[in-house]
Design a protein around this nucleic acid. Structure first.
Lengths: 122, 122
DNA sequence: AAGACATTTCGAGAAACATAGAAATGTATG
DNA sequence: CATACATTTCTATGTTTCTCGAAATGTCTT
């Protein structure tokens, strides 16, 4: 992952409301199905309205939450699929995995030679 | 880590220039020392000027890069310590570890019951 | 103390962002 | 087909953010 994609994803998560939406969707158990091309998509999950209710308390979805969901979608972090009247949202697990891998790698790399050079291998 | 801290860190990384600075510091080998209170701090590392040179090509540090380093510092992602005339910058490994743990956890959690329900327990 | 060097702070202007209400779109249901 | 429902798009507004140059701060050297 290059710094541009990192910035895009992080910008999306860099708003408290979006971070909450993201956290909610992460914890929202969500069965998936495998599509014709092998891609994974949510079968059930949180509707946009449910997300909104959880985040703002509002019964009906607000334009603000809709806007934030779009930002998360455009950053590739969240998927949305129409199901009847509602939109069903879910975390894009591939994108999340890439993000997790980046930070995991960085976490290991950031101390690459400290441990060796300082003689205190812990 | 709560959604507020996540948003703070991600907002800091949500700018391309800052993401580059972060990436540079991650890859910049940096010996650390353990201070009196057991805290880890950089002994050598990239000076603010070196960071700036790498990111902008400018010989002398710009106010813009100084601003971005401050943002990263305030988000807790980067440490800076004076060493003579220069500022020595380094990744805050604890913060990075927390971020890595959050996404790792999310990555596992986001499919918590998909796997169970879809009959593919891995 | 004076000068050079590395960096930060200040101030201003342009661009991007978050929010909210109103209108528009798409979809089921009677 | 008309109505209700879920969501998005549009428009306007106030706020924050990024950037740049100039001035200020802190630190070494002589």
């Amino acid at each position: 992952m290059d710094h541009k994609e990192l910035a895009t994803m992080c910008k999306a998560l860099g708003d408290p409301t979006r971070a909450r939406i993201f956290g909610f969707l992460v914890n929202c158990c969500c069965p998936v199905a495998v599509g014709d091309e092998g891609e994974v998509r949510p079968v059930e999950g949180a509707t946009a309205g449910e997300v909104c209710c959880h985040v703002t308390g509002s019964e009906t979805i607000t334009s603000t939450v809709s806007f934030h969901l779009k930002e998360l979608r455009q950053a590739g972090l969240v998927t949305a699929e129409r199901r009847g009247k509602s939109m069903v949202c879910a975390i894009d697990r591939e994108a999340l995995a890439r993000l997790a891998a980046y930070f995991d790698d960085a976490s290991k790399r950031s101390g690459c030679c400290c441990d060796d050079q300082q003689g205190e291998p812990k």
